[in-house]
Amino acid sequence: MNQIPTRTYRTLARRALQAAALITILASVGGCAHTAPSTTLYERLGGENGIESIVERFLYRVADDPELVGFFANTNIDHLAGSLANQFCAVSNGPCRYEGPPMERAHQNMGITDAHFNQLVEHLDAALREENIALGARNEFLGRLAPMHADVMRYQ
């Protein structure tokens, strides 16, 4: 007797659930299309000055990390800062071309582990947050750097 209302209810609930899921996906994709900023990622990172500040905060954090600072013992930090800023600018569609060494060669035989790499990512994300970079720009920037993991790890 009560099969019909139960079934109907269940079907409705299930459809509602699937529809909600679909709407979530569509809304996010649609939202993406609508809110896609016309500015470049470079601008959203604060342009030349913004990127310089990010690099500075990032390197200060790395210098304070006893597990990472050793990798930079023989590094000219000013040169590294310039090279990083240049790379961040290029990666974020800024008016630069990265002219440093390829990632795999720059990190060759340094004994870098995934743990080191992850720590570095956390320092960079923290630097971005401290510079008040919006979440969307942070995600996009980290997403563009993420594939470099393979190159950095190639000759460890």
């Binding site: 993406c32 809110t35 969307g136």
Partner: peptide, 11 residues
């Protein structure tokens, strides 16, 4: 994880 795939959010 897809970075910034939906309204700047990771998916």
């Amino acid at each position: 994880l897809l970075f910034a795939a939906a309204a700047g959010r990771n998916v």
